[in-house]
Simulated scan of single mutants.
Amino acid sequence: MRAIVVTEHGGPEVLRPAETADPRPGPGEVIVDVEARGVNFIDVYQRSGAYATPLPFTPGVEAVGTVGELGPDVTGVTVGQRVGWVMLPGGYAERAAVPADRTVPIPDGVTSEQAAAVLLQGLTAHYLTHTTYPVQPGDTVLVHAAAGGTGLLLTQLAKLRGARVIGTVSTGAKEEAARAAGADEIVRYTETDVADAVRRLTDGAGVQAVYDGVGATTFDASLACLRPRGVLALFGQSSGAVPPVDPQRLNSAGSVYLTRPSLAHYTADREELLERASDVLGLVGTGSLKVHVGGRYDLADAARAHEDLTGRRTTGKLLLG
């Protein structure tokens, strides 16, 4: 079968297509014939070595396909069923062996492409807005990179929960995308100081929560945007890791809270995984949550997809077909 195999950490050039043996299911595993794969920054971190990943490996922690074979001791999943998964490797391949208890069923009203475009980032946006800082009606929240894949979903879910959303973007096209997702106010961080703009937009009060997946370049502004006892949810580091932080800064910012959450810890229990997936996919199925695919690439063009993602040349979600 075709697969992308990483044999050394490095730039996008290490994403090399290869012919590999078909996987065989172990106990509790299913073989999924993959139809669509999400491209995510975690793939970049694993490829580059920023996240320690044993070599060789096939990247891709988000994919959707049809179950083609069951291993021993599998229950609750059937051959021919459409399923998806997140936070497990192997998606950049034609077939993958996946633990059955980490798969989620894809409802009929959601296409495989939609599901692959929403599972990781949709579940991330869900836990951030429903659990890490549960948005309340009337809250004002700040979403960094509001036109990105996660940002667009965060904006929509925050609006569905009754928030006023301030989004940061870099270009006019990205502003249009963020506003279409429901952002009430837009700050172009390339043209104005984010903290000053947010203070102005909130009459000096600041926001209840900042959802920051950018990291190094936005962290200081994120702290400065919070109101007393606000929450900074630092869920990613697309611009690089944040340097060590003196806890006294949290006091100076207004006794604020800083958390570095991960999807794995909000879906560790299968019941919680299925509940979040059901909520997100249900909203997609009814049209209440819109998924924007910003680029589609052949599996062999994974390197180009990574270049476009890290070069910030896209909006929405990138998919490998």
Score class of each variant (00 low, 15 high):
E176W: 01
G254V: 05
V77N: 12
T171Y: 11
S112G: 02
V83T: 11
E185I: 05
T192V: 12
G172Y: 00
G254D: 03
T78L: 11
I186A: 09
D33T: 11
L154V: 11
D279N: 11
V64C: 12
L283C: 06
A36K: 13
P261Y: 05
R164D: 14
T286S: 15
V214C: 10
Q114D: 12
G182K: 04
L128F: 02
E113A: 09
L289F: 03
A233K: 12
G122K: 10
E191S: 15
G172C: 04
V169R: 05
A300F: 03
P25A: 10
D43K: 11
L309M: 10
V86F: 06
D298K: 12
A216T: 13
A163T: 13
S252C: 10
V210W: 10
D22C: 14
G11F: 03
G138C: 03
T267W: 03
A178K: 00
L88V: 14
V74C: 03
V141E: 07
L258Y: 02
T314A: 12
D196Q: 15
G60R: 10
L318R: 11
P247L: 08
T190C: 13
T168W: 04
A173I: 05
P137Q: 02
V110C: 06
L318G: 14
T58W: 01
Y266G: 07
A146S: 09
P105Y: 00
A241C: 01
E13L: 12
A18W: 03
R304F: 04
R95Y: 02
D308H: 13
T202H: 04
G60S: 14
P105V: 05
D220H: 07
G172K: 00
T314I: 09
N40P: 07
G80M: 01
A183G: 11
R249N: 08
A96F: 02
Q208S: 14
A3P: 03
Y45L: 15
G91H: 09
R188G: 03
F235R: 00
F57Y: 14
E29G: 05
S255L: 09
P12N: 08
T129D: 05
L201P: 02
V104G: 07
V118C: 06
G287M: 06
V39F: 05
D184K: 09
D108E: 15
Q237N: 15
R260I: 12
R200T: 13
V14S: 15
R24E: 11
D193R: 08
G236N: 09
A63K: 04
Y51S: 09
D298Q: 12
S288W: 03
I166D: 06
T168E: 03
R2W: 01
G148T: 10
L263Y: 01
A3I: 06
A147F: 02
G84I: 01
T20R: 08
A180T: 13
S222K: 04
G204K: 08
R249A: 15
K159F: 02
E307M: 14
A205G: 05
P17Y: 02
D269R: 00
G204I: 11
L154C: 08
L283S: 03
L250P: 13
A209V: 10
Y127R: 07
T66H: 06
E271T: 15
L201Q: 05
Y92I: 11
V44T: 14
